[in-house]
Design a protein around this nucleic acid. Structure first.
Lengths: 253, 253
DNA sequence: CCCAGATTTGCGCATTGTGAAACGATCCCG
DNA sequence: CGGGATCGTTTCACAATGCGCAAATCTGGG
């Protein structure tokens, strides 16, 4: 334990985290058996930890006894300093870009093998690309996802490819590890990435990364448009916006 | 431990929760000494648990080593089933009310001694009452806060009054326990509450509660307007909207 | 009603979480 | 500048708490 202690690990907290992550991977409430299998924990251990998480309101149970995330995560999440900072800082810039381009601007964070859309600025026109806040998309078919993979390094890209098998969403989706590594490298090198109808036909995207005060990737910023309306002239503005937001987040690049 | 186990408590998870709550009470990052004092934990124990929460990304440290909430709470919070349900269910109703009244409609959850605004629908007019998502207000000066206190019972109201001392925000704020208890009772009895310039002069509000499938208070719904624009004819619509959303949340009143 | 599978509970044990003490770092004051 | 105070971090020994096994209970389907 002294060895474990020096590396900061407390086993039961790691295990509770694994259980929360396992629940979060499902849209619907999930059974003890599934959670036990997903985390590799003995059923009675999982049951005990989940009971404690319920008591502390991190987890709830539905009518048939299945587990879902609980209200304390919402309460704490809303209180998250970086949540308020990140969205409050990014939103005015996003709105400015939206008005300038006349297209949808999105803010995303990485969660495991997907990006999650956490804020949006949509244009006042009937036809635009729509991503709901809270929705998810695989990393390899999104501009910012490819940047996040590139920033994380080749082993991370390889691990992602192994876990997901790089499924095709359109005829343009990158489905081989070699091509994905090239694309990620290239994207990181030039500072922005494109989604060329890789997630959905007719949808194009330009994405950049946002960095926080520790120099880590904090989020992604992207503009999505019907492919024939996308302008490569937006790249400079996106890069500048990414720098602006990152600086406000305390990044000293 | 067997006795503890049957009641679902795991000490270190309870302690980690207490630390997260303590951090969440501060707007700014907070020191180990303060957290140790707030939770009653020995400094080295608190240090250890915090290190594990950092490793699992529930907590981050800033440049001077102070602790703040971490990004995993955001990622999990966005994935929260009841968060997606609550906001997705409530938003269309809120937008309808906004268009009908021409005023701001807000969705709030209780967090300790405050309400937190988690969703909003703002009217398309320059002058309206504005509450940012993520902002907070004391319970005793908001309509839904008074309902939440009333729903929680007299001991809860008393405890709240003792903790906060009922500070005045305007000349209209309720600052005595007896008056607060009366107001909360009356509000619960009739099903809605008013904020009559108690939080801010010139601002009026009508609030109702939303209930979930377990019959518990899930959130509050309110319409805020400049006081001279507020209409008591909105009460029926607010009550109906509260019932509608609660039913969609699975409430069987 | 019976059976199989899932969940829950009891129990004993060893490993893991804990607090005290020691050490390190930083800041402030004389 | 040096010493003391304060805060944070690490080491260490120990006991209690988290854990897994096994049994009991529950639930749903045939």
């Amino acid at each position: 334990m002294s060895e474990k202690g020096s590396s900061g690990g407390i086993q039961v907290i790691d295990r509770a985290t694994a259980l929360l992550d396992a629940i979060a991977r499902y849209q619907d409430p999930v059974s003890l058996k599934v959670l036990s299998a997903e985390t590799g924990l003995h059923a009675s251990t999982a049951h005990r930890i989940l009971a404690s998480l319920i008591q502390n309101r991190f987890v709830e149970r539905d009518a048939v006894g299945h587990y879902r995330l609980g209200i304390r995560l919402l309460q704490l999440g809303v209180r998250l300093h970086s949540n308020i900072d990140l969205r409050a800082v990014a939103l005015p810039v996003m709105e400015r870009l939206r008005d300038q381009f006349g297209e949808s601007v999105n803010l995303t964070v990485r969660e495991g093998d997907v990006v999650v859309y956490i804020e949006k600025a949509t244009p006042n026109r009937m036809m635009h690309v729509q991503q709901l806040v809270g929705s998810r998309a695989p990393l390899h078919v999104t501009a910012v996802g490819k940047l996040m993979l590139g920033a994380a390094g080749d082993n991370e890209i390889k691990g992602y490819a192994q876990r997901t098998n790089l499924p095709a969403y359109t005829r343009n989706t990158i489905t081989t590890l070699a091509r994905l590594i090239d694309e990620c490298h290239e994207s990181v090198a030039r500072g922005y990435a494109l989604d060329n109808e890789e997630a959905e036909i007719d949808v194009g995207c330009i994405g950049v990364l946002l960095y926080d005060s520790t120099g880590s990737v904090a989020a992604g910023l992207s503009v999505s448009a019907p492919i024939e309306r996308r302008r490569m002239t937006w790249v400079d503005e996106m890069l500048a916006a990414g720098r602006e937001i990152s600086e406000r987040l305390g990044y000293r690049g």
